[in-house]
Nucleic acid binder design. Structure first.
Lengths: 259, 259
DNA sequence: TAGGATGGCTACCGGCGAGTATGGTGCATG
DNA sequence: CATGCACCATACTCGCCGGTAGCCATCCTA
């Protein structure tokens, strides 16, 4: 992942929700006052790689492309990373690390499991919609060496098991409708992962908002609920995405601000 | 798609549910009584391509690989298809065509929309788990020429709009809980598409069964329902996948036979 | 100001893989 | 028998791209 060690200034840290479709700035851009921090440049390389993979895919992105986006040349890129495969791997880890952090963060909470699951899924959606979402979701095993592939598989499995655990806990504490945890976890993760396939920064919603909308779908279910007013006409073809009358109780802490 | 025109014998047509992980047979295998039907061989080429893409990905599959799987050489492959891109495209179309057929089939039904949606999603899941699932789901726009990419985008959009329409109809006729059709369609399609990422033929469930399990999750929702007995202990960690107590009414016509 | 260290560039190599030129083989027909 | 066609293999071309060798500039330090 790009320098998980604490960094002092992090001069080009992107605004957390805004750096997916516009190319990240390059520390090399200003030719005369080049930054000296190696980690900053290394991060920039990985970020540029993630951005390029996002747009053109891993195999259609050459290291010359990445270098050109940073306005340097290929050997410079190799000065910071050992090879292309490592670039993909680091992008993947950068993406998945935030999800793991969400699990750690949630573990301390005392809320019922569905509440905790919701928090995790919201972070999940944010991660998938982030600049590293593509790499996290679409990194193919076949493109990586066996050991890196094993690392990735292990992390993915950890996430999967974490979701299953929350589901089981929720079934146990009564906050989640009885279901098959394995299949449910697959469905949840699949829906969220797929965000990386269609989400573009230009959309009106950000990752967390999409995750919220998905969670609402998953929580209430398609089948009509008796307490829900069945003839609510406001939901017929909602043009503005902010009107989601299907979203039930549990007032979210954050209003769906339109960025 | 592989020869949508009616074919007489189709000698190597695979058993519909069983041809994903084991390589498809080759009409060239028997060297002395080679088949003469061009379409059959062309189908075999496309099927072999789908199988290879499945396992190694598009970019990691060379046309020599595909030819070798058929025990022929590369120019033979080029004798039946014009280029690699077309191979991917035809695999994609072969996969998505079955989904389109499901929509056509369902259009005639008189059932409430949730019932029709369920039928479509079951076919959807089957298609994604089929031998062409990978190509259908993971065909990247960047790997295709602009016009082919446009074709694919149009077909995908058609599917998406079809799901949204069914959702709207269901909200209207009261069979579906009010929700945002766009987001819900994304969530549904995403969960099902993702099957292609983890499903391997060796699994105990087939595509339709997985789709059924997902539909159950989507229909009942995570939130506990009042009518469901909340302390049902049979669901706590169901080891056998056939025990899905969350699956509600609507007796399926087919029992979940374990293949 | 010498000299190392750091960081970057030009110029290359080597291999892989898409696509092709060309020719041979078997079969069907006249 | 010969002529043509369908089909397939051998043996290439050629461009792209991952990765590297080696050189030059700048800066920090003594």
């Amino acid at each position: 992942m790009p320098s998980n060690r604490p960094k002092s200034g992090s001069p080009q840290a992107p605004s957390p929700a805004a750096a997916r479709d516009l190319p990240p700035p390059s520390p090399w851009r200003d030719s005369r006052e080049r930054l000296r921090d190696r980690e900053v440049k290394r991060d920039a390389v990985i970020r540029a790689a993630a951005h390029a993979f996002n747009r053109k895919g891993y195999h259609n992105t050459s290291l010359d492309d990445i270098a050109a986006a940073l306005e340097v040349t290929k050997p410079t890129v190799y000065y910071y990373v050992s090879n292309k495969e490592q670039l993909l791997f680091e992008c993947f880890v950068a993406g998945i690390e935030s999800i793991r952090a969400a699990f750690r963060e949630v573990r301390a909470l005392e809320a019922p499991a569905r509440e905790r699951l919701r928090a995790v899924l919201r972070h999940y959606g944010e991660a998938v919609a982030s600049e590293f979402g593509w790499c996290m979701v679409r990194a193919e095993d076949q493109d990586l060496s066996p050991d890196m592939s094993a690392h990735i598989k292990a992390m993915k499995s950890e996430i999967d098991q974490g979701i299953r655990r929350l589901l089981r806990e929720g079934i146990q504490d009564g906050s989640i409708h009885p279901c098959d945890p394995k299949m449910t976890a697959f469905a949840l993760a699949g829906a969220l992962n797929w965000i990386a396939h269609w989400y573009r920064q230009s959309q009106s919603m950000n990752g967390a908002q999409i995750a919220e909308a998905f969670i609402a779908v998953f929580e209430s279910g398609l089948e009509p609920r008796p307490e829900a007013s069945k003839e609510d006409p406001t939901c017929r073809k909602p043009k503005s995405s902010s009107s989601r009358p299907g979203a039930p109780r549990s007032a979210r802490s954050r209003a769906p601000s339109h960025r």
